[in-house]
């Protein structure tokens, strides 16, 4: 069974060296034979220290994953639909895990409702090559939820106004 991270993990505070490593790598690792050594040299620490700290941040969940970050748009996934769902609070965990496990869902978060204008408490980002493909996938989710779906909507992005790599430090 998937384990959603507990809120306590949010309290983890990396030290200043961790933050420097994040700052130097958040726009991407350098394309050189020894990328961690290149970062280590800038921080005046050893390569193994950089690797150990990245490992520690991965183990505690600060780093979600490491690898190639493809550009979905360039690869033909030009439609992205933010599907939003009103799920009974009593069932949000089981439903969240079920939707989050779908391979066509790239992000699945519980967020607060904002009544009365915003009744939706579950967000699932659905990607596709066309709006129709995204809509079909949203229909699949709706079918899975049955009566636990108290209303949903899908918001298509019509324009990307800004998209930069995450800057967290």
């Amino acid at each position: 069974m998937m384990q959603a991270p507990s809120p306590q993990h949010r309290l983890y505070t990396p030290d200043h060296i961790d933050r420097e490593i994040i700052r130097l790598t958040q726009q991407g690792l350098p394309l050189v034979r020894e990328p961690y050594a290149a970062i280590a040299a800038q921080l005046n620490i050893s390569t193994s220290q950089v690797i150990e700290r990245l490992q520690a941040m991965t183990d505690c969940g600060i780093i979600r994953r490491s690898g190639i970050v493809p550009n979905h748009y360039k690869l033909g996934f030009t439609a992205n639909g933010m599907s939003v769902w009103n799920i009974p609070d009593a069932h949000i965990n089981e439903i969240g895990m079920m939707v989050g496990a779908l391979e066509f869902v790239s992000h699945c978060y519980q967020r607060p409702r904002f009544l009365p204008e915003w009744p939706y408490n579950l967000f699932a980002m659905v990607h596709g090559r066309s709006k129709e493909e995204v809509r079909d996938k949203v229909t699949v989710i709706a079918g899975m939820l049955g009566e636990n779906n108290c209303g949903h909507s899908v918001l298509f992005s019509t324009r990307i106004l800004k998209k930069t790599g995450l800057r967290i430090v």
């Binding site: 991270p5 993990h9 949010r10 983890y12 505070t13 990396p14 933050r19 994040i22 790598t25 958040q26 726009q27 991407g28 690792l29 394309l31 990245l54 941040m57 991965t58 505690c60 969940g61 600060i62 780093i63 979600r64 994953r65 490491s66 690898g67 190639i68 970050v69 493809p70 550009n71 360039k74 690869l75 790599g165 995450l166 967290i168 430090v169």
Partner: peptide
């Protein structure tokens, strides 16, 4: 050519900051 945005870590929201 833009097929890859970058290579590296993807950070989980709300863990730092």
């Amino acid at each position: 050519e833009g097929s890859i945005s970058r290579i590296g870590a993807v950070f989980r929201p709300n863990r730092i900051g």
